[in-house]
Amino acid sequence: MHVVVAAPAKVDPMYQFTIEPLWGTQDWTLAGYNIAFTNSALWMMVAAVLLWVFMLGGMKRQLVPGRWQMAVESFTGFIDGMLEANIGKGGRKYLPYVFSLFMFILFANLLGLMPLGVVGVHPFTFTSHFTVTGVLALISFSIVLIVGFAKHGLKFFSLFVPHGTPLPMVPIIFPIELISFLVRPFSLALRLFVAMMAGHLLLKVLSSFVIDGGNAGPLWGGVVALPAFVLMVGISALEILVAGIQAYVFALLTSLYISDAENLH
């Protein structure tokens, strides 16, 4: 058996996205489908519990809020203001959904960036899976369809004919608008999934540079590892920003789409 002092780090940047069933639940099934409790499901639970704990701090209902209550109220006020601005007076009935969506995605994104690997816990960013973002996008899209048809009936199809379209143009415009409408859930899901995956991938690749460069001695450590490490610090900060922005974009687009269904032009 030979001893390797400085083994090259065999980093597979995609390995972090692997889903693994936990605690021998891989055989759980429901109606023929496998519903194993995976690391992905575990971090969904963690995000949900943390969100619940965070919201508990806002339930003190004091007239003069403390710091925590103020933080919770600023989040609710932020989403409330966004819905008010985009949908109008009728926006408040979608607030529970859009707020849950925003906070859940935000907590998921931020949790995935937590440096918990230091203590041996590896956070799993479930928003980097399009199965997850796809389901969320489909829920948003379903709400748009249900609201649109329930509120306007078949007149909802007039959404695909923009105001002031000349009559001869309608047969051309209609399919284009319809396709762009149908693409919405995919763009919604892919945007979040790609942004989260790309950021984590980049961090992982840079971290492999840091490890390999560091192992290759002072020269390569100084030329490769150190700049890569500095870059990682910067990109980590950027990723925190992206985590917030992507959650915001998802919630914003959802509210814009709901606004289309609610107000129809």
């Binding site: 889903i19 069933p21 429901l30 489908y33 496998n34 519903i35 194993a36 409790f37 995976t38 992905s40 499901a41 969904m44 639970m45 995000a47 949900a48 969100l51 619940w52 919201m55 508990l56 806002g58 339930m59 609710t76 607030l95 529970p96 959904y97 707020f99 849950s100 906070m103 859940f104 479930f126 899976h129 199965t131 997850v132 389901v135 969320l136 829920i139």
Partner: peptide
Amino acid sequence: SQAFWLLIFFGLVYLVVGRGML
């Protein structure tokens, strides 16, 4: 599994946080 647990936990978030606390 992803869809199932997402619906469970996001559903809980929606009911408890969105409908209950918000």
